[in-house]
Design a protein around this nucleic acid. Sequence first.
DNA 1: GTCGTTGTTGCCAATCTTCGCAACAACCGG
DNA 2: CCGGTTGTTGCGAAGATTGGCAACAACGAC
Lengths: 145, 145
Amino acid sequence: MTHDTRRWEQQISQAGYRVTRQRALVLDAVCAGRGHTTLTEVAGRVRRRDRTVSRSTVYRALHMFVATGVVVQADTGDAEPYYEIARETPHHHLRCRDCGWEGEITADDLSALEETVRDRYGFVVNTDHLVLFGQCAACQSRSQS
Amino acid sequence: MTHDTRRWEQQISQAGYRVTRQRALVLDAVCAGRGHTTLTEVAGRVRRRDRTVSRSTVYRALHMFVATGVVVQADTGDAEPYYEIARETPHHHLRCRDCGWEGEITADDLSALEETVRDRYGFVVNTDHLVLFGQCAACQSRSQS
DNA sequence: GTCGTTGTTGCCAATCTTCGCAACAACCGG
DNA sequence: CCGGTTGTTGCGAAGATTGGCAACAACGAC
């Protein structure tokens, strides 16, 4: 269990949503994916626990959780989007175009960029879960040889 | 016309793809969207010029152009993805969560972040067309009052 | 605990996107 | 210019996602 039950219940009910059995199942299914999951995996896990839950409900619950910030969504662009439980400290992803390797970077790593954007454009960046594409260390040395 | 015909023909044929009438139509349709377009708009423009072009072809052409780097795709996450002709100098987007305002930043603005990531993680960032969410200057002053 | 209000769910239909396949056309070599 | 090879297209089907609606359930008030 990577999420605190009290927390998300309060979070969505403050936003005017109700706490339902189906939504709990969906959130559990997101947690069950170590780190990140795809929609397909979530739907599968929910169905295994309760096959009366409709597919639409999974879609709707996931969207609602993303809208309320309980779950965070990362669009990798070339694959299915990832879902994961939002953590206290936001983080971002690295993804190698060659081998598919994935890494994480902290929000601190973005602070310089955020300052630049604020100074030059007056815009306050507030993004969670960016995905940066590029080439990992291993693939760099491999492609040099 | 925002794209050079010679350029893209060479670019895709070097990648092993063929230059076809349908693909030219799709690319023209992307150009026709000042700056950026959605898939729906592209399909509409293509159909207006030649209603025998199938919907699947538009999907496939767009994917192929993105894969070869002729067209660039920006996933805003909460809306339809944008497509636009790739420029010589890559750029990125800002998007205000409150009013939907959109701005552009240059690739230079990311250089500090790229250095940080390379130093700390040995990862070379190579991302085009990032979308940074946040709050624009106007909405900041409005929400302060 | 019971009731009433109102958001939610499941089902089914509509829509969007992808896939498989046979006919077609781009491109190469002669 | 012509024929052969092979990627591409259009079509119809399959699969994925969204939307409408009536029955249902959460939750606040009593």
